[in-house]
Computed example of a mutant assay.
Amino acid sequence: MNASETSHQADQLMHAILNLARFHRDHEKFYSSAPREQAVLLQRHARTLQALADRWSTAERSERSVLSPFEAAEDLNAPDAVQLDGVLFLEGEGRPPEITRLIRDLRTLAEDALSSGEWLAAAMEASWATAAALLPMDGFADVLGERHRIIANDWRAAGLTTLAGRLLERAAEILDGVDFTPAALRADLDGRRTSAMRLYSAAEMIGHAADLSSDAAGAEHDSERRWRTFRSRAEEIVQADR
């Protein structure tokens, strides 16, 4: 390889470094906040399920006759669940549509989390290999730790996001095993109250997923100053070579 080709390769490498430092830093700004917004939604769903489980753990089956099928089931409803996610059990209806929506939300968020985690893990595998090109470059000697910490943070976020997705998948599976019709729930009030137990378990998994999503955002946020430091050094090197 002649000097011209070597110089061209060096220019391409520096362009790639600056490109990553600019656009991936901006990309990570999104992922340092969006998972926390998602965590709030997940916490709300978890609290809804906990409120219902609390109610079904102690409620006595209603024996009253009702005039309208749209009357609320007094023994099954929890005020917090109504206020948080609009879950309202009616005497003449089956599973509340809000429960269907909640389970759908969990599956959608799980699919998104698993896809994002897989993509990010693969990207960091490639980034780790690419960062090896920086090792012999003296100008980056004191910021190699910063660049590799960025990669490590992203890798950690990928793992946390994937685990959150797994938990949400499993929580949805648990909820699919609950018969949310008033008749079935009332029969369970006379039995072992396993519906409440399943809701507690699903809520715990959803709450854990919310915590993991927030932790993933924190890992991304930790890279903000590191990206600025690394990009500044890359720009200094490019200016010095001109």
Score class of each variant (00 low, 15 high):
residue 231 R to K: 13
residue 225 R to H: 10
residue 50 Q to V: 12
residue 89 F to V: 04
residue 56 W to C: 14
residue 170 R to E: 13
residue 129 A to K: 13
residue 166 R to G: 09
residue 192 R to W: 04
residue 147 R to D: 06
residue 60 E to Y: 08
residue 147 R to P: 03
residue 187 A to R: 12
residue 224 E to H: 14
residue 39 A to K: 08
residue 167 L to G: 06
residue 104 R to S: 15
residue 71 E to P: 04
residue 36 R to H: 10
residue 198 R to Q: 15
residue 234 A to H: 07
residue 53 A to V: 13
residue 89 F to M: 03
residue 93 E to M: 13
residue 87 V to C: 05
residue 17 I to E: 04
residue 13 L to I: 01
residue 101 R to L: 12
residue 37 E to H: 12
residue 6 T to F: 01
residue 115 S to V: 05
residue 111 E to I: 00
residue 223 S to G: 10
residue 115 S to E: 08
residue 204 E to P: 04
residue 43 Q to I: 06
residue 189 L to A: 13
residue 75 D to C: 14
residue 239 Q to K: 05
residue 62 S to F: 05
residue 167 L to C: 05
residue 158 A to T: 12
residue 87 V to D: 03
residue 67 L to H: 09
residue 34 A to E: 13
residue 236 E to V: 14
residue 129 A to Q: 11
residue 138 D to A: 15
residue 149 R to I: 03
residue 22 R to S: 14
residue 221 H to N: 07
residue 141 A to P: 07
residue 213 S to G: 04
residue 4 S to C: 01
residue 137 M to K: 12
residue 70 F to R: 09
residue 187 A to E: 15
residue 199 L to N: 08
residue 49 L to V: 13
residue 39 A to M: 08
residue 79 P to C: 05
residue 99 I to G: 03
residue 49 L to M: 15
residue 23 F to Y: 11
residue 36 R to S: 15
residue 174 I to N: 00
residue 17 I to H: 01
residue 97 P to E: 04
residue 15 H to W: 01
residue 147 R to W: 10
residue 207 G to F: 07
residue 159 G to C: 07
residue 81 A to P: 10
residue 167 L to I: 03
residue 125 E to R: 08
residue 135 L to H: 09
residue 241 D to C: 03
residue 124 M to D: 11
residue 186 R to V: 12
residue 148 H to A: 09
residue 38 Q to L: 15
residue 67 L to I: 14
residue 187 A to P: 05
residue 106 L to K: 02
residue 35 P to C: 07
residue 236 E to F: 05
residue 196 A to P: 14
residue 8 H to I: 00
residue 47 R to K: 15
residue 144 L to H: 12
residue 63 E to N: 09
residue 211 D to P: 00
residue 11 D to A: 04
residue 88 L to R: 07
residue 216 A to T: 04
residue 235 E to W: 03
residue 34 A to W: 08
residue 194 T to K: 10
residue 78 A to N: 05
residue 195 S to L: 02
residue 190 D to E: 15
residue 91 E to F: 04
residue 221 H to M: 08
residue 186 R to W: 10
residue 36 R to K: 15
residue 210 A to K: 08
residue 120 L to P: 02
residue 5 E to G: 01
